[in-house]
Amino acid sequence: MPSEQVSRRRWIRIACSSAHAPLSLFVVLVVLASCPVACASHPPPDALAATRDALAGLDDFGALLLGAGLPVEAIPQGRSVSPVQAERLRRYFALLPYLPQHYAPRIVADELLRYVEQHRQEVSRWDLSRMVQEYRNLFLLRQDGYLAAALTGEPAQCVGPVEVRDDGAGAGEFEIGEFYTRRDGESWRRADRPNLDKL
């Protein structure tokens, strides 16, 4: 009987000693367990927070400027655009290189900014966003020969290589700087510029 108790104790001791992990393993587990807590209490700074916030509050006018190639940080803040801001943005666009998809939105943005300058007083962002909608069914001929949506710059149709002419530049019956439109199944036709003064 005593030998049976010794044997039982011996097996309990063996089981317990085999369950003990080395001290170094416990140290590693403690460090790993405390790391998420330490990292969560000091999150890294959000590098794109300003960009995300600016894009979240973007109106149609701001989206147009962004589509025209203006960096997010250069989009004017506030509820209106002053003639001074409009002039500054037009100069910025004149110096800023652009991709083909920026061309049509840049033409529209320039027209709206020129309107603000000529108006000689602040124009609300709400009014400018309303004016943007007047261009939603219009297209412009890009220098690469594509008719592109005025607001997005998305190409709709290639009409041929652009050539320099006596009165400007164009491809076939299309001219650079003129607006065009078409309805489903119809051919392209020239469209009048939106009359921003009547809006």
Rank of each mutant, 00 (worst) to 15 (best):
L128F: 09
V37K: 11
W126T: 14
R91E: 03
I75F: 04
A49R: 07
Q85L: 01
H20E: 00
Q85P: 00
I107L: 09
A15L: 03
L29H: 10
V116Y: 08
E87C: 03
P105C: 13
A109H: 06
A40Q: 12
L95A: 09
G69W: 03
H20L: 00
G78H: 04
F61G: 10
L70G: 03
L112N: 12
V27E: 10
Y98V: 01
R9L: 09
R52Y: 09
H20T: 09
V132W: 07
Y98M: 01
V37F: 13
R13K: 09
P22N: 04
Y115A: 06
D60T: 14
R13E: 07
V81R: 02
E87F: 02
G62R: 12
A104N: 02
D59K: 10
P76A: 03
E73D: 12
E122W: 07
S41D: 08
M131N: 11
Q85Y: 02
L96A: 00
G78C: 01
L48F: 06
A94D: 07
W126L: 15
R13W: 01
R106T: 01
V132K: 14
P100N: 05
P36F: 01
E73H: 10
A74R: 02
L55D: 06
A74M: 09
Y98H: 06
A54T: 10
A38I: 12
A47W: 06
Q121I: 06
A49D: 07
Q77W: 02
S17K: 01
F93V: 05
